[in-house]
Design a protein around this nucleic acid. Structure first.
Lengths: 189, 189
DNA sequence: TTTATTTCTTGTCTTATGGCAAGTTGGGTT
DNA sequence: AACCCAACTTGCCATAAGACAAGAAATAAA
């Protein structure tokens, strides 16, 4: 299970089977229960993890103190707060388990060693970042160009697990609307 | 000028003065005239550049064919379409000079060589990506949590050059509103 | 200069979403 | 079972922003 999961996530042409094994060995199993925090605002993150099962969300607060879901993490995704981890700064977001979760984590110093000694890992990292930047830009564009209803329908297609496992209010804030409006949109569909 | 600009942009503790010089040497001057395209949708990007003077915007099209400004680039910024450059895929965005511009570009193969032979460069790259991901997330959050008027006031503070040098309709689409609404917001201020 | 084109503003009406308050429902606790 | 509380829905009215159309102003072209 561990091998299958991580082999898939770290897939990259420059990464030889031996190097891949070094990478996989560097990960340790972690479990969280529903409601547990993977990272709290103000802490400095020291690791990231690959999610094997469960659902996780990250959230921040707006200027009014409302919490806003910034992301949902599903299976095979990298659960990380890049700014805190790589710039060694206090996290501005919270990361919390919405269900019981199993994942595989790797500590920064171990990752750092792999990143600098294995070219395939730094290539993989850059590609991962590339995808992340792209996703973020797509999200901004989507918020700007489409209605909450369309965004909801898109989310249903992209991450159906979220609809099934997350309280609606978290989905509403992810979509950028109130739970009241979200309720009305759901009624229409 | 070249040295001053690039030294500032590539500042990183792991980058020795000699390595920094190798990096700087790898950049060549480029100029664009108002209206020129740095990159067109469908092309595969082969380089990125650091902007020395002028103003640039990137834009994409929404499902209705309206063009939406996704970013403005000012001095000292890295002008790049990461997905096209690093994944070797056709660009989904256009990048266009809004004024005459001077910049320093570096080709992908040259960058690649530096990235893998100088640890300071791969570290710099990761930090740059980290910042980029953060900015993108902040932008999504801002669109979701604040009004177009607030976002406009924020842009005035962050990138005053944009207000002075860009046609208003491009700013409007960046803010996610029509030029009509933007005109009304401007009247209020 | 005169004309043509794009950019920007303004007026009127419509629509999506928010704010607030009053229910309702459902899962957990004692 | 009776209760509680958070999650969700619904009603009513307010507000931000859009759609469309008509001008005004600025810029480019002839």
């Amino acid at each position: 299970m561990k091998n299958q999961l991580l082999t898939q996530v770290y897939q990259h042409p420059l990464l030889s089977p031996e190097d891949l094994n070094r990478v996989i060995d560097a990960h340790q199993e972690v479990t969280y229960q529903k409601g547990d925090f993977i990272l709290k605002e103000g802490e400095i993150s020291n690791s990231y993890m690959i999610l094997q099962s469960g659902l996780i969300r990250s959230y921040a607060y707006d200027y009014n103190g409302n919490d806003i879901t910034t992301d949902f993490f599903c299976n095979y995704e990298v659960v990380i707060e890049v700014l805190s981890l790589f710039q060694r700064t206090p996290a501005q977001e919270n990361i919390q388990a919405l269900t019981d979760c199993i994942g595989w984590k790797i500590d920064l110093d171990v990752f750092q060693e792999l990143y600098h000694s294995i070219p395939g890992v730094s290539e993989w990292g850059r590609l991962w970042f590339t995808g992340k930047v792209f996703q973020s830009k797509q999200r901004s564009l989507e918020i700007i160009t489409s209605s909450a209803k369309d965004r909801y329908e898109h989310l249903i297609k992209e991450k159906p697990q979220v609809i099934l496992q997350s309280p609606l209010k978290y989905i509403a804030s992810y979509l950028g609307i109130t739970d009241t409006s979200f309720s009305r949109i759901r009624k229409e569909i």
